Simulated assay, not measured.
Amino acid sequence: MTEPEEAPAQSSFSRPVVIGAAVVAVLLLGAVLGMFLTQRALNSSEPATPAAGSVEVGFAQDMSVHHLQAVTMANWERDHSTDPQVRQLAFDIQSTQLEQVGRMKGWLMLWGQPEQTTGAYMTWMTQSGGHDMAGMGMPSPGASSSDAPMPGMATNAELTRLRSLSGRDLDVYFLQLMLRHHQGGTAMAQYAHDHTSVAAVKALTQSILDSQGAEIVLMKQMLAARDAQPL
């Protein structure tokens, strides 16, 4: 009787490789979609390509940085939480915002602009528009890199604390940080939505407002269910 062949041992690094490939694929898909939408806009009757210092360029640069911190926090929560509901939320945030980052980086490539600003953050979003960053409890543009540079972002100390927690404490603190993160991000998205004439940017900012608005409501409910309050 022929002995059954043993299944080949799964490589210990196969999971990280698969995850890494998936992240690259999502970013590439977002970049391609971003370039397609922007190119279509440029071929229509839309205004000229956004220039450095414009709301569109500033938003794409700064919101990419903002989103990537959310992705970092969501990845940590997804990999270290044991709460299925919070883990699902973290996965949804990571997936959605990573695709949006790819789209914004695609725009910047097509517009001939760097992926990140070379100056202070948030110079495209003026206080005269009714979004006073100081009123959100946030540092002004040009703050130290050890602080949160944009509305809602976590500081290095807060990220360190998040990584030190486990169980319910981890889940609650993640929800608190991400709720504040979303609130800051929606303020940025609202300003860009109200001040852009580029259809692709208006569409993305509306999508951010819709998805993060729903997640804000959900996170408040999840905190209340865990006898916790927002920060």
Rank of each mutant, 00 (worst) to 15 (best):
A70C: 14
L37C: 05
S64R: 01
I93G: 07
N75A: 12
R78I: 00
L68C: 05
A31N: 07
F91M: 12
Q69R: 04
E56C: 02
F59L: 13
G58Y: 05
M35T: 08
S44T: 12
S54A: 13
V101I: 15
L98G: 08
Q100H: 09
R40N: 12
F59S: 09
P47A: 06
H66D: 12
H66V: 05
L68G: 01
L42D: 10
E99A: 10
D79N: 15
V86D: 11
L33K: 14
P84L: 13
A70L: 09
E99R: 05
Q97F: 01
Q94N: 14
S64D: 07
A31H: 00
Q88C: 00
H67N: 10
S44A: 15
G102L: 02
D62R: 07
T96E: 01
Q94M: 14
S45N: 06
Q94I: 07
H67T: 11
A70Y: 07
H80R: 05
M35A: 14
W76L: 04
R87V: 05
P47E: 02
V55R: 03
A48K: 08
T72F: 13
G53C: 03
T96I: 06
P84D: 15
R40H: 13
L89T: 08
F59E: 12
Q61K: 04
M63Y: 09
R40K: 10
A60G: 04
V65M: 10
E56W: 02
S81E: 11
L33G: 09
D92C: 06
V86F: 05
T72E: 15
Q88A: 11
F91D: 13
V86K: 01
E46V: 01
A70I: 08
A60R: 02
V86H: 10
P47D: 11
M63R: 03
Q100Y: 01
W76S: 09
L33T: 12
F59D: 06
A70N: 06
T38K: 00
I93N: 00
Q61M: 09
F91A: 15
D79F: 04
T82N: 12
D62W: 01
V101Q: 03
G53M: 07
Q39M: 00
R87A: 15
S54N: 08
N43G: 13
P84K: 10
V55N: 10
M73W: 01
A90H: 04
L89N: 10
A52H: 09
I93H: 02
T38H: 03
S44M: 13
L89K: 03
V101R: 05
Q88F: 04
D83N: 15
S64F: 02
R40V: 09
L27H: 08
V26T: 14
Q39T: 14
G34M: 01
V86N: 08
T82M: 12
V71R: 01
Q61R: 06
P84T: 05
M35G: 14
V26C: 05
